[in-house]
Design a protein around this nucleic acid. Structure first.
Lengths: 233, 233
DNA sequence: TCCATTCGTTGATCTGAATCAAGGAATGCC
DNA sequence: GGCATTCCTTGATTCAGATCAACGAATGGA
């Protein structure tokens, strides 16, 4: 890779905080790669061959049962980390939901580099702990929340995570945004069917809580109400 | 703490692999503490004050909604790590399911020690990555599996994790074990009600897949069948 | 521009698990 | 041992969300 210091996710990705020479060394090991919407980068059950930083785009992390049932267990945005370091196999698949740009490393190369650079491992640890918190939050949703609560929670979460990028601007999260997911994928994140997702969105729209100008865009019109409906802790 | 080198979880806990002097230094920071069944060690939403290793016993990690709905998001066994390092608040509660013995550290003290000891952070990272894998597996269960599949999966998981301790002996996991959970708690792990749990267990017993000599003990009589029923990936 | 295909919505019906209800078995306290 | 309490099981009924079905709207390729 040419020049990590120019990278758009430079200050938010796992590489943030590395010394210039470390950053340079890491840069030598990675390469940029574009992937197109629908393309799978990592396959569930396969050897864990690569890890990567997301430079741009959104990807899903999913697991499935042999009969085809699929659960999306994570969404990955710009500056997030992809893949399973320190593991022989990948327990999940990673698939692009939008065209995306990645900064890819061989898993084993990354592993050894990380072992020699405690600051990098520390960053990875913090990131993994945060992801675990999010996974726990989602387990509460999947185990205990109603369809309405799930939809409300997802909309707030998407609003917050899509808003993170604009580091400053207005601190209030985005009230209008493009969903990187179609209805089926929303169902696969929430443990619901496509029909239930569609009905719940229609209800929220009818109640004036949100607006749905087109298939993919959501405009939050009453954030407080959505927060109530989400049954936050 | 007196003598970490004599600790029963010495070779399995996060402290494994530390140099003798490191181990000694860490030992100075911790203290042993007994907790009794039902006692809560960490409260959801409170400041994250302590972290700990589990020396003996089983604890649950749980999150809840204000109206009382609760989801158990993890079970913690001997040699496992408890608490949220590098975070201001604890997103979950930790409660003893059996009498237990812990090796407790102040969270901030542990944090700084960890930052100065990359080997410890590495161990913690691996552990957190494994926990994340398990959380993902559970999200698949909560999002997509039927009641029967959930129960079968839990029984196999309990059998495996309770068997881990006996490091060698017979490699086949335990076919009979004591559940550290009552029916309500099984429901809270699986996203089911107590009645559904009870019915599913009765069905498995009627089918001769398991036996239930008393409330808390399970004997797996047909592991292959249980595996089929669990809808493993 | 047309057509084909994919995607989303809405309605009707069904069903797995929740809820409501009651009784039975184990456990612990006096 | 007797009593109270907690825990578990089983049955009857309900209900949220799944499934089945049809149609309408957007998208993309020729």
């Amino acid at each position: 890779m040419k020049d990590c210091s120019q990278c758009v996710v430079r200050n938010r990705a796992i590489c943030a905080g590395l010394e210039p020479d470390e950053l340079d060394a890491l840069g030598q090991l990675g390469r940029k790669q574009r992937v197109t919407k629908g393309q799978t980068v990592v396959w569930e059950g396969d050897d864990s061959v690569v890890v990567a930083n997301v430079i741009e785009g959104v990807l899903k992390v999913s697991m499935s049962i042999s009969d085809g049932r699929e659960q999306i267990v994570g969404l990955v945005f710009a500056s997030d980390f992809i893949g399973r370091p320190f593991g022989q196999q990948s327990p999940y698949s990673v698939t692009a939901l939008t065209d995306a740009e990645l900064c890819i490393f061989s898993r084993s190369t990354f592993d050894s580099f990380a072992r020699q650079h405690p600051e990098l491992e520390h960053k990875l640890l913090r990131r993994t702990l945060n992801e675990l918190d999010r996974a726990h939050e989602w387990m509460l949703l999947l185990g205990k929340k109603t369809a309405t609560e799930r939809i409300a929670t997802l909309l707030l979460e998407m609003s917050a995570r899509l808003g993170e990028t604009g580091c400053s601007a207005d601190k209030s999260a985005l009230d209008a945004f493009q969903l990187p997911l179609d209805r089926q994928q929303i169902g696969d994140v929430l443990g619901l069917t496509i029909e239930t997702v569609s009905r719940q969105l229609s209800l929220l729209k009818a109640d004036g809580v949100i607006n749905l100008p087109d298939r993919r865009t959501v405009a939050i019109q009453n954030r407080a109400r959505l927060q109530d409906l989400s049954a936050a802790a």
